[in-house]
Amino acid sequence: MSEHTVKAFDDDITRLRGLIAEMGGLAEVSIQESLDAMVQGNEGLAEKVIKRDRKIDAIETDVDKLAVRIIALRAPMADDLREVIAALKIAGVVERIGDYAKNIARRVGEIEGRKRFEPLTLLPAMGDLAAEMVHDVLTAYASRDPELALEVIRADAKVDAFYNSIFRNLVSHMVENPATISSAAQLLFVAKNIERIGDHATNVAEMVHFAATGEYPPDEDS
């Protein structure tokens, strides 16, 4: 982006982008750690994830304040305005992603008989895909790369397919092992949360694309 005559404006935008990146980094680590905690049954790690969410929330408030201040004081135009609006929306979405990671961490204690509970092995691969999407979309945001953003949007179909497969798998597991129904039901929620993380990464990708090009990406669902 070209430099502005008012240096302070540049500083504000840079700071805004820095805050978003910081939030994203926290969310990324939370996703990974919540899944690790889930698979290993590590409640200490889960506790850490839950605590971290407060930090993410605090940064979101900072982003909101800064964005409103920029709009009020500097009246940005064109790509600057898109940048600020996108940052405002992305912060909201990343905060949601953090919440999902927290939700996953909350369920760590609810799984019983972890050693013999085979559906647990399905989650990491799905979590990897979603975490990869979040990683890529944050990189796309950092480099203002609309192409990478489109790639993230395309990757969402894989996460969805994975979710359907895990859903079927879990349901058949419940039918065969009624004793584990409560644990399996918890895992259904976890899988759903991961699927939502993928959806939200897609939302961020759309906004990255919008901030970079001024257009929302073409709808590829149809």
């Binding site: 840079t14 700071r15 982008r17 820095g18 990146a21 910081e22 980094g25 990324e28 944050l138 950092a142």
Partner: peptide, 20 residues
């Protein structure tokens, strides 16, 4: 990290909490 990182906030390049 891509040439976009010059003149950016360092947090954009390193978003990991430890790095921040």
């Amino acid at each position: 990290l891509g040439s976009h990182l010059v003149d950016q906030d360092a947090r954009v390049a390193f978003r990991h909490p430890e790095a921040i």
